[in-house]
């Protein structure tokens, strides 16, 4: 059991425990904090699997941007009270059972996969030099399409979030 294995187990326990915290904590703010911790654990996994660029992007994009957006919405709506109504006990048991069944089915489906030990050699395949070169040569079309997707999402978010003045106008007009 070397350093790599110990790191794997620490990060795995952290990821699963914090993921359970996301689902089980009553306060939505605590859920957000737990999810950020889960993302940090997953970034640690990326680091030990030679995906350094992805680890940094995961922290910057997920923990830095997306989760801040979640926190912002939560604070804006003043939802940090523990006033969330619970689903019925039957529905909760059914949800846990179906999730656990899915886990078992997926586990059984992948049980026959080769159980290979992992090479612990450090390579520079996940560095930004490599990925950037690949992103701007072989995968330049998906990259450009994703930029268009971002533009669409930006416009969509603005259009959805806007108040609808034309509706109010027609209401006033009819009244």
């Amino acid at each position: 059991m070397d350093f790599y294995d110990i790191l794997f187990w620490i990060l795995s326990v952290m990821a699963v425990g914090c993921a359970l915290g996301v689902v089980l904590s009553r306060n939505p703010i605590h859920s957000v904090i737990f999810l950020i911790l889960t993302f940090f654990a997953i970034s640690g996994h990326y680091l030990i699997m030679n995906a350094q660029f992805l680890a940094i992007v995961n922290i910057i994009v997920y923990a830095g941007a997306i989760m801040v957006l979640f926190l912002y919405i939560l604070m804006l709506m003043n939802l940090n009270a523990d006033a969330e109504p619970q689903k019925g006990l039957l529905v909760q048991i059914a949800g846990i059972l179906s999730g656990g069944t899915l886990f078992l089915v997926l586990l059984a489906a992948t049980k026959s996969a080769h159980n290979e030990t992992i090479n612990k050699v450090s390579t520079d395949v996940g560095l930004i030099t490599n990925l950037g070169k690949l992103l701007f040569t072989k995968y330049v079309l998906p990259f450009e399409i994703s930029s268009v997707l971002f533009l669409t999402a930006m416009i969509g978010a603005i259009v959805i979030g806007k108040k609808e003045p034309h509706l109010n106008n027609t209401e006033e007009h009819s009244a």
Partner: peptide
């Protein structure tokens, strides 16, 4: 590990009522 995280996500979507969660 991945299957566990995925299943926890599924359970969360099924048992919570808060849309943000």
């Amino acid at each position: 590990l991945s299957l566990l995280l995925f299943s926890i996500g599924i359970m969360g979507t099924l048992i919570r009522r808060n849309a943000i969660i």
